[in-house]
Design a protein around this nucleic acid. Structure first.
Lengths: 135, 135
DNA sequence: CTTGACCCTCCAGCTACTGGAGACATTAGA
DNA sequence: TCTAATGTCTCCAGTAGCTGGAGGGTCAAG
Protein backbone atom coordinates (compact mmCIF):
# COMPACT_ATOMS: atom_id res chain seq x y z
CA UNK A 1 0.00 0.00 0.00
CA UNK A 2 1.21 3.46 -0.89
CA UNK A 3 0.98 6.27 1.58
CA UNK A 4 -2.24 7.77 0.29
CA UNK A 5 -3.99 4.40 0.41
CA UNK A 6 -2.93 3.83 4.00
CA UNK A 7 -3.82 7.41 4.89
CA UNK A 8 -7.32 6.90 3.52
CA UNK A 9 -7.65 3.58 5.29
CA UNK A 10 -6.52 5.06 8.59
CA UNK A 11 -8.50 8.26 8.22
CA UNK A 12 -5.44 10.49 8.48
CA UNK A 13 -3.85 13.06 6.14
CA UNK A 14 -0.85 11.83 4.17
CA UNK A 15 1.32 14.45 5.85
CA UNK A 16 0.38 13.15 9.25
CA UNK A 17 1.17 9.54 8.37
CA UNK A 18 4.61 10.64 7.22
CA UNK A 19 4.99 12.72 10.35
CA UNK A 20 4.12 9.82 12.66
CA UNK A 21 6.93 7.71 11.33
CA UNK A 22 9.29 10.67 11.23
CA UNK A 23 8.90 11.06 14.98
CA UNK A 24 9.00 7.31 15.50
CA UNK A 25 5.45 7.03 16.81
CA UNK A 26 4.86 4.22 14.34
CA UNK A 27 7.66 2.14 12.80
CA UNK A 28 9.27 3.39 9.61
CA UNK A 29 7.70 1.61 6.65
CA UNK A 30 9.70 -0.30 4.08
CA UNK A 31 10.49 1.48 0.82
CA UNK A 32 9.99 0.59 -2.79
CA UNK A 33 12.88 0.80 -5.27
CA UNK A 34 11.91 4.33 -6.10
CA UNK A 35 11.77 5.30 -2.45
CA UNK A 36 8.01 5.18 -1.98
CA UNK A 37 6.81 4.18 1.48
CA UNK A 38 5.12 0.79 1.51
CA UNK A 39 2.66 -0.18 4.26
CA UNK A 40 0.89 -3.33 5.36
CA UNK A 41 -2.32 -3.98 7.28
CA UNK A 42 -0.57 -3.98 10.63
CA UNK A 43 0.57 -0.43 9.92
CA UNK A 44 -3.00 0.57 9.15
CA UNK A 45 -4.20 -0.92 12.44
CA UNK A 46 -1.58 1.00 14.37
CA UNK A 47 -2.39 4.25 12.62
CA UNK A 48 -6.09 3.80 13.29
CA UNK A 49 -5.26 3.10 16.91
CA UNK A 50 -3.21 6.28 17.12
CA UNK A 51 -5.89 8.34 15.42
CA UNK A 52 -8.52 7.14 17.83
CA UNK A 53 -6.31 7.74 20.83
CA UNK A 54 -5.57 11.26 19.56
CA UNK A 55 -9.27 11.87 19.09
CA UNK A 56 -9.66 10.90 22.74
CA UNK A 57 -7.21 13.68 23.51
CA UNK A 58 -4.27 11.49 24.44
CA UNK A 59 -1.00 13.30 23.73
CA UNK A 60 1.46 11.84 21.26
CA UNK A 61 3.55 10.76 24.23
CA UNK A 62 0.61 8.95 25.72
CA UNK A 63 -0.14 7.40 22.34
CA UNK A 64 3.39 6.08 22.36
CA UNK A 65 2.77 4.50 25.76
CA UNK A 66 -0.60 3.12 24.76
CA UNK A 67 0.79 1.76 21.52
CA UNK A 68 3.48 -0.02 23.50
CA UNK A 69 0.81 -1.54 25.72
CA UNK A 70 -1.33 -2.31 22.69
CA UNK A 71 1.48 -4.32 21.20
CA UNK A 72 2.56 -5.97 24.41
CA UNK A 73 0.65 -9.21 24.79
CA UNK A 74 1.87 -9.59 28.36
CA UNK A 75 0.94 -6.23 29.84
CA UNK A 76 -1.75 -6.07 32.46
CA UNK A 77 -4.95 -4.15 31.93
CA UNK A 78 -4.03 -2.13 35.04
CA UNK A 79 -1.26 -0.41 33.06
CA UNK A 80 -3.76 0.77 30.49
CA UNK A 81 -6.35 1.71 33.06
CA UNK A 82 -3.85 3.94 34.84
CA UNK A 83 -3.23 6.06 31.74
CA UNK A 84 -6.90 6.20 30.81
CA UNK A 85 -7.92 7.19 34.31
CA UNK A 86 -5.39 10.00 34.38
CA UNK A 87 -6.77 11.22 31.09
CA UNK A 88 -10.29 10.99 32.45
CA UNK A 89 -9.31 13.21 35.36
CA UNK A 90 -7.82 15.75 32.96
CA UNK A 91 -11.05 15.78 31.01
CA UNK A 92 -13.09 16.30 34.15
CA UNK A 93 -10.81 19.14 35.24
CA UNK A 94 -11.13 20.79 31.85
CA UNK A 95 -14.88 20.46 32.06
CA UNK A 96 -14.96 22.22 35.41
CA UNK A 97 -12.84 25.05 34.03
CA UNK A 98 -15.00 25.42 30.97
CA UNK A 99 -18.10 25.44 33.08
CA UNK A 100 -16.97 28.31 35.28
CA UNK A 101 -15.75 30.16 32.22
CA UNK A 102 -19.06 29.62 30.52
CA UNK A 103 -21.05 30.78 33.52
CA UNK A 104 -19.04 33.93 33.97
CA UNK A 105 -19.06 34.90 30.33
CA UNK A 106 -22.74 34.02 29.91
CA UNK A 107 -23.50 36.25 32.86
CA UNK A 108 -21.68 39.14 31.20
CA UNK A 109 -23.31 38.52 27.85
CA UNK A 110 -26.76 38.47 29.40
CA UNK A 111 -26.08 41.72 31.18
CA UNK A 112 -25.11 43.42 27.93
CA UNK A 113 -27.89 45.11 26.03
CA UNK A 114 -26.00 44.72 22.80
CA UNK A 115 -27.29 47.92 21.29
CA UNK A 116 -25.68 50.98 19.74
CA UNK A 117 -24.79 52.52 23.06
CA UNK A 118 -21.18 52.33 24.21
CA UNK A 119 -21.50 51.15 27.80
CA UNK A 120 -20.95 47.42 27.95
CA UNK A 121 -20.86 45.12 30.97
CA UNK A 122 -18.68 42.64 29.07
CA UNK A 123 -15.84 45.10 28.68
CA UNK A 124 -16.32 46.21 32.25
CA UNK A 125 -16.28 42.61 33.39
CA UNK A 126 -13.04 41.92 31.54
CA UNK A 127 -11.50 44.94 33.16
CA UNK A 128 -12.62 44.20 36.68
CA UNK A 129 -13.08 40.49 37.09
CA UNK A 130 -11.62 39.39 40.38
CA UNK A 131 -10.59 35.74 40.05
CA UNK A 132 -8.56 34.01 37.40
CA UNK A 133 -9.92 30.91 35.70
CA UNK A 134 -7.55 29.93 32.85
CA UNK A 135 -8.95 27.62 30.20
CA UNK B 1 7.56 51.67 36.13
CA UNK B 2 10.06 49.08 34.99
CA UNK B 3 8.96 45.92 33.30
CA UNK B 4 8.99 43.69 36.36
CA UNK B 5 6.87 46.17 38.32
CA UNK B 6 4.30 46.34 35.56
CA UNK B 7 4.42 42.57 35.13
CA UNK B 8 3.67 42.13 38.82
CA UNK B 9 0.91 44.71 38.69
CA UNK B 10 -0.68 43.06 35.67
CA UNK B 11 -0.20 39.52 36.91
CA UNK B 12 1.84 38.48 33.90
CA UNK B 13 5.38 37.14 33.45
CA UNK B 14 7.96 39.69 32.34
CA UNK B 15 8.57 37.70 29.18
CA UNK B 16 4.92 37.87 28.26
CA UNK B 17 4.74 41.62 28.77
CA UNK B 18 7.68 42.03 26.41
CA UNK B 19 6.07 39.61 24.00
CA UNK B 20 2.79 41.51 23.94
CA UNK B 21 4.43 44.67 22.78
CA UNK B 22 6.69 42.79 20.38
CA UNK B 23 3.62 41.53 18.55
CA UNK B 24 1.93 44.89 18.85
CA UNK B 25 -0.91 43.67 21.05
CA UNK B 26 -0.20 46.55 23.41
CA UNK B 27 1.63 49.73 22.38
CA UNK B 28 5.42 49.79 22.61
CA UNK B 29 6.43 51.49 25.86
CA UNK B 30 8.76 54.46 26.03
CA UNK B 31 12.37 53.76 26.90
CA UNK B 32 14.71 55.13 29.53
CA UNK B 33 18.16 56.46 28.58
CA UNK B 34 19.63 53.05 29.18
CA UNK B 35 16.98 51.39 27.04
CA UNK B 36 14.76 50.06 29.81
CA UNK B 37 11.07 49.89 29.01
CA UNK B 38 9.04 52.40 30.97
CA UNK B 39 5.32 51.86 31.59
CA UNK B 40 2.48 53.93 32.98
CA UNK B 41 -0.81 53.05 34.64
CA UNK B 42 -2.68 52.98 31.34
CA UNK B 43 -0.31 50.25 30.18
CA UNK B 44 -1.04 48.25 33.31
CA UNK B 45 -4.78 48.57 32.73
CA UNK B 46 -4.43 47.30 29.18
CA UNK B 47 -2.24 44.40 30.23
CA UNK B 48 -4.69 43.41 32.95
CA UNK B 49 -7.47 43.62 30.38
CA UNK B 50 -5.54 41.35 28.05
CA UNK B 51 -4.70 38.90 30.79
CA UNK B 52 -8.34 38.61 31.82
CA UNK B 53 -9.48 38.20 28.23
CA UNK B 54 -6.86 35.47 27.70
CA UNK B 55 -8.03 33.74 30.87
CA UNK B 56 -11.49 33.76 29.33
CA UNK B 57 -9.98 31.89 26.42
CA UNK B 58 -10.10 34.72 23.90
CA UNK B 59 -7.32 34.30 21.34
CA UNK B 60 -4.68 36.96 20.98
CA UNK B 61 -6.45 38.06 17.82
CA UNK B 62 -9.70 38.44 19.69
CA UNK B 63 -7.89 40.31 22.44
CA UNK B 64 -6.68 42.69 19.79
CA UNK B 65 -10.25 43.26 18.69
CA UNK B 66 -11.55 43.59 22.22
CA UNK B 67 -8.76 45.95 23.14
CA UNK B 68 -9.70 48.11 20.18
CA UNK B 69 -13.30 48.13 21.38
CA UNK B 70 -12.15 48.73 24.94
CA UNK B 71 -10.33 51.84 23.84
CA UNK B 72 -12.99 53.09 21.47
CA UNK B 73 -15.33 55.31 23.38
CA UNK B 74 -17.75 55.36 20.46
CA UNK B 75 -18.19 51.68 19.79
CA UNK B 76 -21.52 50.05 20.48
CA UNK B 77 -21.96 47.32 23.03
CA UNK B 78 -23.30 45.17 20.20
CA UNK B 79 -19.78 44.92 18.75
CA UNK B 80 -18.50 43.51 21.98
CA UNK B 81 -21.46 41.25 22.49
CA UNK B 82 -20.93 39.72 19.07
CA UNK B 83 -17.39 38.60 19.91
CA UNK B 84 -18.32 37.39 23.37
CA UNK B 85 -21.29 35.45 22.07
CA UNK B 86 -19.15 33.73 19.47
CA UNK B 87 -16.72 32.78 22.20
CA UNK B 88 -19.57 31.50 24.32
CA UNK B 89 -20.67 29.25 21.49
CA UNK B 90 -17.16 27.91 21.14
CA UNK B 91 -17.11 27.13 24.84
CA UNK B 92 -20.44 25.34 24.63
CA UNK B 93 -19.25 23.31 21.66
CA UNK B 94 -16.08 22.34 23.48
CA UNK B 95 -18.16 21.31 26.45
CA UNK B 96 -20.27 19.02 24.33
CA UNK B 97 -17.18 17.42 22.84
CA UNK B 98 -15.60 16.91 26.22
CA UNK B 99 -18.79 15.42 27.55
CA UNK B 100 -19.03 12.76 24.87
CA UNK B 101 -15.33 12.08 25.22
CA UNK B 102 -15.71 11.74 28.94
CA UNK B 103 -18.68 9.42 28.65
CA UNK B 104 -16.99 7.14 26.17
CA UNK B 105 -13.74 6.93 28.03
CA UNK B 106 -15.45 6.52 31.40
CA UNK B 107 -17.42 3.66 29.94
CA UNK B 108 -14.21 1.97 28.82
CA UNK B 109 -12.47 2.56 32.12
CA UNK B 110 -15.41 1.13 34.04
CA UNK B 111 -15.41 -1.96 31.86
CA UNK B 112 -11.74 -2.58 32.54
CA UNK B 113 -10.95 -4.77 35.50
CA UNK B 114 -7.55 -3.15 35.86
CA UNK B 115 -5.85 -6.25 37.10
CA UNK B 116 -2.79 -8.23 36.02
CA UNK B 117 -4.56 -9.92 33.15
CA UNK B 118 -3.82 -8.70 29.64
CA UNK B 119 -7.28 -8.36 28.12
CA UNK B 120 -8.42 -4.78 28.36
CA UNK B 121 -11.60 -3.17 27.06
CA UNK B 122 -9.87 0.23 26.86
CA UNK B 123 -7.37 -0.97 24.30
CA UNK B 124 -10.12 -2.81 22.46
CA UNK B 125 -12.24 0.33 22.51
CA UNK B 126 -9.45 2.45 21.09
CA UNK B 127 -9.00 -0.08 18.34
CA UNK B 128 -12.62 -0.39 17.45
CA UNK B 129 -14.40 2.82 18.33
CA UNK B 130 -16.70 3.76 15.53
CA UNK B 131 -17.19 7.54 15.61
CA UNK B 132 -14.66 10.33 15.82
CA UNK B 133 -15.01 13.04 18.45
CA UNK B 134 -11.90 15.26 18.36
CA UNK B 135 -11.21 17.34 21.43
C1' DC C 1 5.26 10.96 -25.35
C1' DT C 2 2.90 13.86 -22.67
C1' DT C 3 -0.10 14.91 -18.96
C1' DG C 4 -1.58 14.56 -14.48
C1' DA C 5 -1.62 12.34 -10.22
C1' DC C 6 1.48 10.55 -6.95
C1' DC C 7 5.49 10.55 -4.15
C1' DC C 8 9.89 12.31 -2.15
C1' DT C 9 12.74 15.65 1.05
C1' DC C 10 13.41 19.78 3.31
C1' DC C 11 12.11 24.15 5.12
C1' DA C 12 8.89 27.37 7.11
C1' DG C 13 4.99 28.61 9.75
C1' DC C 14 1.08 28.18 12.91
C1' DT C 15 -0.25 29.62 18.65
C1' DA C 16 1.26 31.80 22.53
C1' DC C 17 4.54 31.82 24.79
C1' DT C 18 9.02 30.22 27.52
C1' DG C 19 13.96 29.40 28.36
C1' DG C 20 18.56 30.61 27.86
C1' DA C 21 22.95 32.99 26.36
C1' DG C 22 25.65 36.93 26.52
C1' DA C 23 25.95 41.65 27.54
C1' DC C 24 24.89 46.08 29.83
C1' DA C 25 22.52 48.82 33.98
C1' DT C 26 21.21 49.54 38.51
C1' DT C 27 21.25 49.04 43.31
C1' DA C 28 22.27 47.34 48.04
C1' DG C 29 25.65 46.14 51.20
C1' DA C 30 30.49 46.06 53.12
C1' DT D 1 33.89 53.13 46.49
C1' DC D 2 33.97 48.60 45.14
C1' DT D 3 31.54 44.51 44.42
C1' DA D 4 28.05 41.23 43.99
C1' DA D 5 23.44 40.45 43.05
C1' DT D 6 19.76 41.45 40.63
C1' DG D 7 17.34 43.61 36.65
C1' DT D 8 17.09 44.44 31.91
C1' DC D 9 18.28 44.20 27.10
C1' DT D 10 18.34 41.53 22.42
C1' DC D 11 18.29 37.53 19.85
C1' DC D 12 17.81 32.67 19.07
C1' DA D 13 15.66 28.35 19.80
C1' DG D 14 12.27 25.27 21.43
C1' DT D 15 7.55 23.62 22.86
C1' DA D 16 2.97 20.40 20.41
C1' DG D 17 1.31 18.58 16.51
C1' DC D 18 0.93 19.15 12.69
C1' DT D 19 0.26 21.78 7.88
C1' DG D 20 1.62 24.18 3.58
C1' DG D 21 4.69 24.84 -0.05
C1' DA D 22 8.84 24.56 -3.09
C1' DG D 23 11.32 21.89 -6.08
C1' DG D 24 12.01 17.73 -7.65
C1' DG D 25 11.47 12.45 -9.15
C1' DT D 26 7.90 8.43 -10.45
C1' DC D 27 4.14 6.12 -12.48
C1' DA D 28 0.05 4.98 -15.27
C1' DA D 29 -3.30 6.34 -18.79
C1' DG D 30 -4.29 7.91 -23.30
Amino acid sequence: MNISAVADAAGLPVKTVRYYSDIGLVPAPTRSDSGYRSYDDAAVRKLVFVRRAREFGFSVGECRELLGLYEDRHRSSADVKRIATRRLEEIAEKQRELQSLHDELAHLVEACRGDHRPDCPIIDGLEARRTAAPE
